[in-house]
Amino acid sequence: MTQRSLLEVEDLRVRFHLRTGLVEAVRGVSFKVGKERLGIVGESGSGKSQTARALLGLTPPPGEVLANRLTFDGIDLLAASRRTLRALRGGRMAMVMQDPKYSLNPVMTLGAQMVETYLAHTRAGIREAKEKALAMLEAVRLRDPERVFSLYPHEASGGMGQRAMIAMMLITDPDFLIADEPTSALDVTVQQEVLRILDALVDERGMGLIFISHDLRLVSSFCDRVLVMYGGKVMEELATGNLSDAQHPYTRGLMNCLPAISGSAHPLPTLERDPEWAR
């Protein structure tokens, strides 16, 4: 990597002090990302979403975030004031959430939610913000931006909602985008379309991207590098070009689970999990 790293994470830990004891969701994760695409794969509970939330300072209340280093463009995210963090969030770093059915405010129109984001980070007037929002809706290839602008979330389909979500998060031209399973809640046919749109926009704007998914194949086709997580730790970091060189048995296990078009696999391979890895 000759590029300067935008985001530097070193020994990130996220823990929750619960009544039942200490739960460590993320246990010493380190990586660097520039204006490139990093995929994070792992099963449920592997800590991938908590990693993303910690980067944005959105770890839910009882949680505690520790790291040797957690910087965005040289700004120490752990020491930054709330005001600085707020300006970064939505301004320079954004996140596409998982399910548009729950992640959009049900009593505000899609347009109002987009305009709100833009106005929170610029000194623009309402007219300019509305124009920008319409332009963004067009950029995510929605056919009738004016109409979508005035829809309420329940009036939009899942695909429309997620495109509006992408448009809303990119309206401020952020440098860095986190996509937390952006297509998991969508129909398979819509998934491809939404991914293509995301792909094109990230390319066009030269953004850095962290793409979180449990789908190794999807991630490998979409990203430059992949981080494989298990039990809150990074098992292996690979360039997507040489996935076949994977050394770690967990990664190899994941790859063996990918079904092949030709030939049948009987019995189906099962994923091997060794508690030792999570030590």
């Binding site: 959105l58 969030r89 939505g90 996140m95 959430m97 959009l104 405010n105 049900p106 709100e116 929170a120």
Partner: peptide, 14 residues
């Protein structure tokens, strides 16, 4: 506790 509140935080609202 709803997701749209997290979205609002991601957007950097006060």
């Amino acid at each position: 506790s709803q997701e749209y509140i997290t979205t609002a935080r991601v957007k950097g609202l006060s």
